[in-house]
Amino acid sequence: MSVIYVLLTISICVALIFFIAFVLSVRSGQYDDAYTPSVRMLFEDELVAPTPKENNNQNNSQTE
């Protein structure tokens, strides 16, 4: 009946994986700004699809 030990080990391992994921996400700064991403995801990408920049020479002075 030692299967319960196996189950316990697995369940704790799973719990620990999630816990480590949580710590890593906090460390990477995910929780520092909890507001901006909620706005950012609503922007519609298709409206800003990059078009070839032929007419924006007024700000760009880079040499290629």
């Binding site: 700004d33 901006t36 706005v39 924006n56 700000n59 760009n60």
Partner: peptide
């Protein structure tokens, strides 16, 4: 966050709204 369209040298911009 789309500031790079105004100048090619701007690589990445990120806003912290709050």
């Amino acid at each position: 966050e789309n500031l790079n369209r105004l100048h090619n040298s701007i690589k990445n911009t990120q806003v912290d709204f709050l």
